[in-house]
Each structure stands twice: as structure tokens, then as C-alpha cells.
Design a protein around this nucleic acid. Structure first.
Lengths: 138, 138
DNA sequence: TTCTAGAGTTAGAATAATTCTAAACGTAGA
DNA sequence: TCTACGTTTAGAATTATTCTAACTCTAGAA
């Protein structure tokens, strides 16, 4: 269900360039990690991974990089009710989420599997809907 | 659209008692403020109000009180994508939200005005759905 | 009414997530 | 190569929230 987009560093570099982001080593590595390996990581989980796998990277760079990638539209930043941490999602298509309340783990739900209809007061103009289904995975 | 439940301190006290929460002056005042006056306030906004309107109240009491009220089921704590602050909602019925992305202001959407249907993977059992419609109020 | 235990409140310190700052570094283009 | 500017860095600062330990209040017992 969760799409895994495993790309080579060269392809990642391409993506960064296309998005107008200078492809530095740190950005390539972090972006690749989130695309290929991580599952809805927090900034701190990315930092942990980066400290193990890249030589010498500062916390600020991790935050800067994540912020840059989100601004460039390459990642989505999510904030969910169960945690005060921002979660980064490599799935930038419109989609929704399922939160396993037991494990705290987040799963993507494809846009087409969720249908929402709503009635808004006059003058309210919607441009996006986010759905979080909460429950358990057995 | 937003329900305003304006109750007297005595009625508030009753509600606290019913919920098994000892109705102290601070709790009555804060709960009443949120029920009657505040609109989806943050802890900090409640603290600001409390410092002006109650004599001598500590920040810790504001947080404790809000936590107690949420635990007792008298308030709902919300966390939304646009802010890192917890928002307190006196509407404890199932309902959804509309976020005005310009002002950051939150509006309640009655449960019956939003309909969600979804298809989950096997073994996923839902027990609640939260919808946030984002857009503008003209 | 007084006493007491437990709950509530307090100031201030502590924690956790994130952002800022200013200096040092790297890199693409002149 | 040189320069300018964007990137990274360490560490400090900020912000939201929680913890701690002492103090206070209050409901019920005596």
C-alpha cells in the first residue's frame, strides 16, 4: 500500500534539481533515506539515522533540509493528534492516513479509497480535505 | 454553527461534579471561559485570559486544568497541521473541522454535514474518523 | 470547630522540539 | 582563480509543555 520509490542518488539529484533545490550531499542522502527506507519519520528519527550514516551532520542541517524539501514540494509535513512531532511523508500525492492508535504507526490510504462529501456554510471555500482514520491493526 | 453553551458557574460546577472532577474555582473559571467565551483557544490563550481575569493563577494550573478537563471528557484536545500548539475544543460531540488557512481560525463542522466512506486493508479496524477541510472564508 | 489527609496550586526548573545566529565552508559562474 | 552566495555548522535561543517539591486548600472525621 505504501509506495516505495527507490531511486539512485543520481535520480534523487535529478529530482532535487527539477524542484529547484541545489543537490548537496546532505540533501541527497536525507531525501533518499526518506524516499527509500524511512516510514513517516520524525525529524529526530532522520537525525538519528543521519548521525549514524553520514559523517558529521548537524541537527540544524537536518531541520533545514527537511524544511527545504517540504517547501520545494518534495515532502509533506504532517502533524497528528497523537504526537507533538512533525512527521515527514514522501507521498506527496493527495492521500489520507490511517493511524494505528496502539503502535502510533501511520499508514497511507490512497486518495481513491476514501470518499468525503461535505456541506459547508456559504462563503466557505474548500481547497483540500485531510482525513485521518484512527483505529487498530490486528 | 458553533454551539455556545453559556452556563452559570453553578451549572459548570454541576458538570464538573458529574464528570468526577473536583470543582475548584480555577477549574470552574477556566471551563466556563472555554464553554462561553473562547473559540478553540490554545493553552497559551487560556493562560493569557486567566492572568487577566483571575487573581494569581500559575501557568502550571492552566495546563493541569486543561489536561484534567480533557481526561474527564469535558474538552477535546486538537492538534492541527498549521500550528504546533494544542487547541481546546468545548464541542465534545463527534464533529469535524474547517480550517481557514488565511486566518488560522478553526470552525466546527457538524458530524452530519460530513460524510466519509473508506476502504481499509484487511485487519485494519477503524473506530473514529477525523476530517479537516482546509480553505478560505470569503 | 479543629485536625488531618489528600487533592489542588504554585514558582521555578527541566525537558523536548524546533528555530535562530553568526561564523565557516563549498561551489558555481565570472 | 576569485568572488559571491548558498549551505552547513555548533551552540545558543525560543517555545510549548511537563515536572518537582513545597505550600495551600478543602472535605470529612473527631
Amino acid at each position: 500500500m505504501t509506495k516505495r520509490l527507490c531511486l539512485s542518488p543520481a535520480e534523487i539529484e535529478q529530482k532535487l534539481n527539477d524542484a529547484g533545490v541545489q543537490p548537496t550531499l546532505q540533501r541527497i542522502a536525507i531525501f533518499r533515506h526518506i524516499l527509500c527506507e524511512a516510514d513517516h519519520p520524525t525529524a529526530d528519527q532522520v537525525r538519528e539515522w543521519a548521525e549514524k550514516n553520514l559523517d558529521k551532520i548537524s541537527q540544524a542541517t537536518v531541520y533545514n533540509t527537511l524544511g527545504t524539501l517540504v517547501e520545494a514540494g518534495l515532502l509533506q509535513a504532517l502533524r497528528l493528534p497523537h504526537s507533538d512531532k512533525v512527521i515527514y511523508d514522501h507521498n506527496i500525492e493527495d492521500h489520507h492516513h490511517f493511524l494505528d492508535e496502539k503502535s502510533g504507526r501511520l499508514y497511507d490510504l490512497p486518495e481513491e479509497d476514501v470518499e468525503v462529501t461535505y456541506k459547508l456554510p456559504k462563503k466557505f471555500r474548500a481547497h483540500r480535505v485531510d482525513v485521518v482514520v484512527k483505529g487498530r491493526v490486528e
